[in-house]
Write a protein that binds this DNA or RNA. Structure first.
Lengths: 125, 125
DNA sequence: CCGAATCCCACTCGATACTG
DNA sequence: CAGTATCGAGTGGGATTCGG
């Protein structure tokens, strides 16, 4: 039925917990590991490393290690990574316009069913 | 640092495995449970039910049960759900333009590192 | 400073079988 | 037809500790 419809890698790639935030964090300038960790409050080094490696693998950012003591590494967006900002902004714009309505729907659902909280949270980036 | 930046519910909501596909499936007309199940090849009744309930809870679609025998239920997008198509299309457009580049980066990463496959697959909708 | 190693939990998703 | 019940695998993410 949807044969020929395009793949939709972007929401999947960006829909995880940290990728979008990392891109926002690198939008204006390259950052060092510790800067990212400080900005992304709550991320552990392991998860930050995994996320950065995964994004590097997909060509969204580059990792540059300087041979100094103490060691220094910085991460910067590639053009490919930067190009994701546009669809991300489309998602943000949707949230700006419609998130309140979604939250209202969710609240009235819980009122009427006394249900337990479900999936799909809301994150700020 | 990013205080005041808008929440980004859309990629999170749509970034799961089935939500985007369900929206595409309901884009042109309401569908019954079995129609959805047939179109979304591979989804199990349990997961389809969970997804639909979760989307109903968030006001993305409505569920209508008709008191007939055999039972009949249909699902249709709300205006809120329909409004998600626009940012979804932005993600699709990004994939159309850049997915090949991402896959190339991923391939050359594996060539150079003999690494094991990582996260973030690619889905067609 | 920038991670790697290890352990662990929660949660999503799927397979299978059953029902009003 | 439209689900529900149960079980289980896989994975993303987190806590903690250790190393170059």
């Amino acid at each position: 039925m949807f044969l020929g419809c395009p793949p939709v890698a972007a929401p999947i790639r960006v829909g995880d917990k940290w990728t979008a935030k990392i891109i926002r964090c690198l939008e204006s300038a390259p950052r060092r590991f510790t800067e990212l960790q400080a900005t992304l409050r709550g991320i552990t080094p392991k998860v930050l490393t995994e996320s950065l490696r995964s994004m590097e693998r997909d060509g969204l950012l580059t990792r540059t290690a300087y041979d100094e003591i103490p060691p220094r590494v910085d991460y910067r967006l590639t053009e490919l990574g930067r190009s994701l900002i546009e669809p991300m902004n489309a998602g943000c714009e949707w949230s700006r316009r419609h998130l309140a309505e979604l939250m209202r729907a969710r609240d009235s659902w819980y009122e009427s069913t006394s249900g337990i909280p479900g999936r799909s949270g809301v994150e700020s980036i």
